[in-house]
Design a protein around this nucleic acid. Structure first.
Lengths: 225, 225
DNA sequence: CGTCAAATTGAAAGTCGTCAATTATCGTGG
DNA sequence: CCACGATAATTGACGACTTTCAATTTGACG
């Protein structure tokens, strides 16, 4: 079956590309035919197994993609922020679910009856780049899930998010502890305990639960040998 | 940068496509310009960070791709068997290392100075399909690593491999317990203990350590709710 | 100020890892 | 063909890290 995306160029990004977990920058692979959609917190954007007819770009807010086991266990694959593109999974069916972490606005672009090649070389290349990056991230994530301890996971998470803040030293989290836990393969309690532990050791400061300052960024980075 | 693969079609697969962890079938995305290479057990095929100038197809034997932490911890991303294609990671640099699990023969294909689009629509589509499948597998693997227990992991591993045997009920493992452990995010001891446990419960039989019969396939499948 | 969800903290349990010893397996050479 | 040595695999005992269960505190919002 032919892979079908109708990509069109959009040279005026709708939001500053402050990107982290998904796209390293605004890549301009956007259709002009996009339509704006709003999702309130925890609302489902699409569900695993649904047919793939659109892909999305985040305008504001945060989106998570995840998988579930039938008993409710959840693994979050990635978080997406303003400028990030998501929803390109599988040829025909979504391999993940996508949900709004916070109230958010996205633009959805319809896949049309033209295959990748027909879409043109430049666009195909951008799509490749996107997939390659997703793949590399997934591999890095697997290493974290399979081989890192709780402290290492949490430290990596904080450093990752700090990298896309202004000073690289503070993080304001849109997600709950449960989201973090399900991203890191831990429980809420372990995440909470680990953060408290890091605060006691003066590696971070938590003015509020969602605002974290990385006071010792080097030490945090050192957890990721 | 343009994504560059010079794909050429090869309609006569070099080996029966008994595929599992990587490719669902022989997809014919092969250059005629491939050259045969042999690697003895545990030999490195390429290393993470190396420039990507070739990709590979397994003729015989088994290959693993993996990542390492500086202290030696290893996470195996995937195993590849006869007919599987591997080595397509990243635009310029390998995001994984590849090593021979057993003595093996592969065909390597050189990437050339033509970008994806120039390679033609059909080939671009096949590459997309390949990447999408890799991505879906990586996500499934992350769910396993982050949210499944030791028994569930081992059961899933066995069922996966049995799916590509003749009767779907027996597995002959090319890899060591250490390989299995590093694939599942466990230790050798836990893998070994879990297998013994499954044997005591009559879910499997182990004539030898590397030959496993799944006597109760249904029960094993049920671990993956 | 009261209510509810989110987050923290404590205590206890359990799963899995670590360390160590034993057994099995395979290739090699006598 | 058997013995030997090296590597792989199994098993046990113990311990640590993480989870589970439960209670408390914090924070957001009407």
């Amino acid at each position: 079956m032919a892979t079908q995306f109708a990509y069109q160029l959009d040279r005026k990004p709708v939001a500053a590309a402050q990107v982290k977990f998904a796209e390293p920058r605004d890549n301009g692979v956007l259709g002009l035919a996009g339509s704006v959609q709003n999702f309130s917190q925890d609302r489902e954007i699409y569900v695993e197994g649904a047919p793939v007819d659109t892909f999305y770009k985040v305008v504001s807010g945060v989106v998570r993609t995840c998988k579930f086991l039938s008993d409710g266990r959840r693994q979050i694959d990635a978080f997406y922020q303003a400028g990030d593109i998501f929803g390109i999974e599988g040829e025909a069916l979504h391999s993940l679910s996508a949900e709004a972490v916070s109230d958010c606005t996205v633009i959805s672009y319809r896949r049309r009856g033209a295959d990748v090649a027909a879409a043109g070389g430049q666009i195909a290349d951008q799509l490749f780049e996107h997939l390659m990056q997703r793949l590399a991230r997934a591999q890095e994530h697997a290493l974290l899930l399979g081989r890192r301890s709780a402290v290492e996971k949490v430290a990596a998470f904080l450093v990752d998010w700090a990298d896309c803040s202004a000073d690289h030293r503070s993080v304001s989290l849109a997600m709950t502890r449960q989201d973090i836990a399900d991203y890191l393969g831990l429980t809420i309690e372990t995440v909470s305990r680990t953060l408290s532990h890091l605060e006691r050791d003066s590696l971070i400061e938590m003015p509020t639960a969602r605002q974290i300052r990385l006071t010792d960024l080097e030490a945090l980075r050192d957890f990721n040998v």
